[in-house]
Write a protein that binds this DNA or RNA. Structure first.
Lengths: 126, 126
DNA sequence: GTCGTTGCAAAGCCTTTGCAGGGAA
DNA sequence: TTCCCTGCAAAGGCTTTGCAACGAC
């Protein structure tokens, strides 16, 4: 894999993730990155996100309720929260999953947990 | 909503879910239903699955690891397991999710849990 | 005989790929 | 100057929709 060049497009996408600090959909990235680079094309976003995942800087996740999202790669296992009011996704640190979730006969090696409800910001607004 | 007619196609799809007793993808339904009705078309599967969800007989779920699946509608909350060996999805009864999963400030109203690993059948085969 | 259902084909979406011009190094 | 990257357009893959013929009732 060749090292990526620093283009205005790539810089804009990096800046978006560094500033918002939460998982983003392709459309969210496109919209936010266009604030810096008006000409930004969806294909460019797709290509850059793909490369950033390969490089280990981003991670691709799938929320059942929101589809594919990209987030800054984390070291630690964590879960995700999807706010029904503002439709934003958040990372939730820590994992309180009970081991008794493992059903008899099944060998559980991994898991995903998704929480749904209202985020702190929307709780205040309510 | 008008009552659905009993066609060979719909009967085949119903039979598939009644016999396998686990969540199925559109392709899985199509393949299995074609064993009874060779002419079965993808559009027919999509339309029937949609109607069955409306009627409350099926439920549409999304596994991050396997995409959209349909399962017989359950009364009780439950989770899902995806076997990495045979690629089949299973329903896991019960919910051992710890309440301490709720992060401070977030109002958690609902959740999804997905387990990944090896199913009982594949454990034996291993 | 009605009118809901089906198969086929076309249309939609979202994502990926091809290509020539542009720009980073 | 080199060749990676970008924008635009075309191509893919999956799902939905339009339509005429079929078939459940």
């Amino acid at each position: 894999m060749t090292k990526m060049r620093h283009t205005p497009q790539r810089n804009a996408i990096e800046a978006v993730f560094s500033s918002v600090q939460r998982p983003l959909s392709v459309d969210e990235v496109l919209e936010l990155a266009r604030e810096q680079v008006k000409s930004m094309d969806p294909a460019t976003v797709y290509r850059n996100l793909g490369r950033m995942v390969e490089e280990g800087w981003l991670e691709r996740i799938t929320l059942p309720s929101k589809g594919v999202l990209y987030e800054l790669k984390q070291k630690a296992h964590h879960h995700h929260f999807h706010c029904r009011r503002c439709d934003r996704a958040f990372e939730i640190q820590g994992c309180g999953l009970s081991p008794k979730l493992a059903p008899p006969g099944f060998l559980v090696e991994d898991h995903d947990v998704f929480l749904y409800g209202t985020c702190p910001e929307c709780v205040k607004t309510a």
